[in-house]
């Protein structure tokens, strides 16, 4: 176990590789091998080199270097945030910060990545556990804290890319305003409008301000009666994760 506690003035965060704390897998300290129970019930294992090789067969080495070094924060671990985190973990983004105050609820199961055994668990812990079974060697920090205008710059100011994935519109506006005004080195990728059953093609990615990309249809409002359904939420989260990868890998990347 390599978990360390990082204590700020108001918040406690856990940090480190996600390979500990899984239900079905364990990993010996400093080992590059992740052990798990296979589909036949027998004990099995996968190594870090196995994952690297699978990536290398498909993508150039330079891409892996950039992705492994990339640092992305996700604010809100609901339908958008949990889907974004899984996409980025599968893509090999090396350093993630997960922030949410809430615990997994039965109403989350219709669109969020969590499973029934996660009910009642902090979303930060549940998502770390899910990510650990996708890539046990990612550096995943998690903060179970409610984001406010006051703590947002301290939480996110050192992260070059922040995905805004909150549910409430006032929280979205609060975080986006705070980061744009106070964190000059942070690019924000926000979700705005993905409720209901409208055409998935209405969801798009637009650069709205110099350091702000917005994904969504900009219109459908979950607080105005249109419920959130898994497909459109996943489409929007996919837009956000894709923009993050473009920012990390693109030739004109504004990200260090």
């Amino acid at each position: 176990m390599e978990n360390t506690e990082i204590k700020g003035p108001e918040i406690a965060c856990s940090a480190g590789p996600v390979r500990d704390g899984t239900q079905d897998g364990t990993q010996e300290d400093r080992s590059h091998v992740f052990s798990y129970r296979g589909c036949d019930g027998a004990s099995s294992s996968i190594s870090r080199e196995d994952l690297d090789r699978a990536f290398d067969e498909r993508f150039p080495a330079r891409m892996k270097e950039k992705l492994s070094a990339a640092r992305v924060a996700i604010a809100g671990l609901g339908g958008l945030g949990s889907n974004i985190a899984v996409s980025l973990a599968r893509s090999g983004v090396g350093h993630l910060l997960l922030v949410d105050f809430d615990v997994v609820d039965v109403t989350n199961l219709n669109r969020q990545m969590y499973l029934i055994p996660h009910l009642g668990m902090p979303k930060t812990d549940a998502l770390r556990q899910i990510l650990s079974q996708i890539n046990p060697w990612l550096d995943v920090q998690a903060c179970q804290v409610r984001v406010t205008r006051e703590n947002a710059p301290g939480l996110f100011g050192h992260w070059p890319i922040v995905c805004e994935a909150f549910d409430r519109p006032d929280q979205k506006a609060m975080l986006t305003t705070a980061l744009l005004a106070q964190c000059p080195d942070t690019v924000i990728v926000s979700g705005n409008g993905m409720a209901g059953l409208g055409d998935a093609n209405d969801i798009r990615t637009q650069q709205k301000m110099r350091r702000l990309y917005v994904c969504g249809d900009g219109e459908t409002d979950s607080t105005a009666g249109a419920g959130l359904m898994a497909p459109r939420v996943a489409v929007c989260a996919g837009h956000q994760a894709n923009k993050v990868l473009q920012l990390i890998l693109g030739p004109d990347s504004p990200v260090r």
């Binding site: 339908g79 909150f166 006032d170 305003t177 979700g191 993905m194 409720a195 709205k208 219109e219 409002d221």
Partner: peptide
Amino acid sequence: LAIIPREDLDKVILQDGDSVEILRFVGGG
């Protein structure tokens, strides 16, 4: 090109020639 903090919305007076972007958020995530 400068963000206006929430508490300054009633203090900043729009001037001739200003360029303003307003992004409205809706709920859902």
